[in-house]
Design a protein around this nucleic acid. Structure first.
Lengths: 121, 121
DNA sequence: TCGAACCCTCACACAGGTGTGAAGGTCCAC
DNA sequence: GTGGACCTTCACACCTGTGTGAGGGTTCGA
């Protein structure tokens, strides 16, 4: 598919799709006319990238962890250098931290909202 | 306490503490000599701010939700304008989304790490 | 064959969170 | 009273993710 369709199906601007490609997060082939040609599975991938970005991870890290999240993952075992594993562990821990933090604060907000709602009536 | 101590106790640069103050996330009084003077409870607050920032929330939003997270929160009921509540709900939902996403991806990373570890030996 | 709707690259711009450093005041210990 | 460790404000600069638009090519239907 071409960039416009991918953009529409992922809710992402063309600009950003090109940016992600520049950052090595997605790949594309080129048609004879120079247009980018995307594989269908990139829809999921782009959505995932956006989720990770929104979660606060920089493209640099996302690029590193994406291959490990692909299926089938057996193919990527060779990539598993010690540094890579260390990065993954670090990032996994940071994500756990973030989850804890977000959950706690979200619950606090929920509590507050509940309290406000049962206050007025 | 002065800015240096707060910086050290929160692992934050002085620059950023001033920035947070400029953004209205923290307050300080001034000593006679013009130095900022911080209340001890700001240690927790700054840590919380950093967690929220790291989780991807902008200072603008953090400023809005922080008062609701304070105890005792009853004081802040008057702040609850409809727009405020809407913002909170929206932000709470986004946080839930983020948590889901982060958890899913973190679990995938964990799985990958486990797989790699049980692969070589 | 024209126009619309695509696509390309390139580049400037912006906001947000940070770093860094200049130029200067204060405080304290030697 | 001098030096070092603090503090102040101000400003420039960076990176990252985005928007926007210029200038130009391709494809396709009317």
């Amino acid at each position: 598919m071409r960039i416009g369709e991918l953009a529409e199906r992922t809710g992402t601007s063309r600009r950003l799709l090109r940016y992600y490609e520049e950052r090595g997060l997605v790949v594309s082939t080129r048609s004879a006319n120079g247009y980018r040609d995307y594989d269908a599975n990139l829809v999921d991938r782009v959505v995932q990238i956006r989720g990770l970005l929104d979660a606060g991870l920089p493209t640099r890290i996302i690029k590193q962890i994406l291959p490990c999240l692909d299926k089938p993952r057996a193919i990527h075992f060779p990539d598993a250098t010690p540094e890579m594993l260390a990065t993954l562990e670090r990032e996994r821990d940071r994500m756990t931290e973030r989850v804890r933090f977000l959950t706690r604060n979200r619950d606090a907000i929920s509590e507050y909202l509940d309290a406000v709602r049962t206050y007025v009536p």
